[in-house]
Design a protein around this nucleic acid. Structure first.
Lengths: 162, 162
DNA sequence: CATCATCGCGTGCATTCTGCACACGATTAA
DNA sequence: TTAATCGTGTGCAGAATGCACGCGATGATG
C-alpha cells in the first residue's frame, strides 16, 4: 500500500498530464489539421457542437449548452448554423413539446465519419509503438476516470441544487 | 497480438473518453467551483494563462500564445491584465532583449498553490476507491500518451514550417 | 380546474473578445 | 552597412458572448 503522500504526488503528476493534454487538444491548429485531413469545410467553433450532438443525440439546446459549458443562447445560434448547413436536423420532441431536439442528418453523419477516419489516420503514428496491453489499459483507466468524474460531478450538482 | 481492427476500436473508445474528459474540464462551472474552493478571485479567461506561465516560466508572449493556440496579441493583453493584478511579473530577457519574459510573482505563486490544493481536495473523492496500481498506471500511460502527442505535433509543425 | 412558477427556446442589444494590419525596437543574415 | 526577421504592443473592425426579455409548454399547488 502506497502512502497517502505518494498517492497525492501521483495524482498531481496525473493532473499535469491532463493539463497538457487539454492544452494540446484545445489548439485551433489541431482542429484545422483534422478538418483539412477530413477534407471537409467547417467553422472551428461548430466542431465541438457537432461532436456533442452526435454523442448525445437527440438532445435539446439547453442540455447541450450545459455539457458544452456555454450559455444556451450561444449554443442556440450555433446549432442554428449547423442546421443551415444541413448537418443537423431540428424536430420537436415527442415527450416534451418545449424541446426541439437536435440530431445529425445523413450529411452530418458523413462529416462525423470523415472526422473519425481522419482522426484514426492521424493517431496511428502515435500508437504505432504501443503494446496491446498499454493501449487497452489506457482506454480502460481513462474510461473509468471519466465515469468517476461524471458521477462525482452529478452528485456535486445535486448537492448544489438542494 | 490484437488485430489491427481491435486496436482501432480501442483507439476510438479512448478518443471518446478524451472527448468526455475535455467536455468536463472545459465546463466553466468547474473552474468556478475550483476558484471558489481555492478562495481566490480570478477571471476565468486568465485561468489557463496563469497555469501556463507557472508551467513554462520564464516565457515570452509569443511562445505562450503558441502553446495556448491563440493570437499573440490576445495573449499579450491578457498577460497585461495578470501583470496589473500583480500575479505576473514582466521583465526583459537577459539573452534576447526583444523578449519580455513573464513569470509568477509571490502573489501569483500563492494563487497557484491555492488552486493546486483545492484541486487535490476536489479530486480526492474520485480516487478514493482506486487501487495503487490503477492510479500509477493511469499516470504513467497518460504521461506517455501526452508526450507522444507532443512529439508528433512538434514533428508535424516542423514539416509545416518547411 | 385555475393559477402561478418553472422550463426550453430564441431574439435584441450592449459589451467584450479576437485577430489582422501595422509600427517600433532588437536581432540576425547578407 | 543594409535588409530581413523576430518579439512585442496598439488601433480598429468584425465576431462572439451573455444578459434581459418574451413566448409557448409543462408542472405544481390549492
Amino acid at each position: 500500500m502506497a502512502t497517502r503522500r505518494q498517492r497525492q504526488v501521483t495524482q498531481r503528476r496525473l493532473h499535469e498530464s491532463i493539463i497538457d493534454l487539454i492544452a494540446i487538444m484545445n489548439q485551433p491548429h489541431r482542429d484545422e489539421i483534422l478538418i483539412a485531413e477530413a477534407g471537409i469545410q467547417l467553422d472551428r467553433a461548430l466542431f465541438p457542437l457537432i461532436v456533442g450532438i452526435h454523442r448525445f443525440a437527440p438532445i435539446g439546446v439547453v442540455e447541450l449548452a450545459d455539457r458544452a459549458g456555454r450559455d444556451h443562447t450561444t449554443v442556440s445560434r450555433q446549432v442554428a448554423k449547423l442546421a443551415e448547413l444541413g448537418l443537423v436536423e431540428r424536430r420537436p420532441s415527442a415527450e416534451d413539446r418545449r424541446v426541439k431536439e437536435a440530431l445529425l442528418t445523413e450529411e452530418g453523419r458523413r462529416v462525423i465519419d470523415a472526422i473519425d477516419a481522419a482522426r484514426g489516420r492521424l493517431n496511428q503514428p502515435v500508437f504505432e509503438q504501443w503494446s496491446d496491453r498499454d493501449l487497452v489499459e489506457l482506454e480502460r483507466l481513462m474510461r473509468r476516470y471519466v465515469n468517476d468524474l461524471v458521477g462525482w460531478s452529478a452528485a456535486e450538482k445535486a448537492a448544489d441544487d438542494r
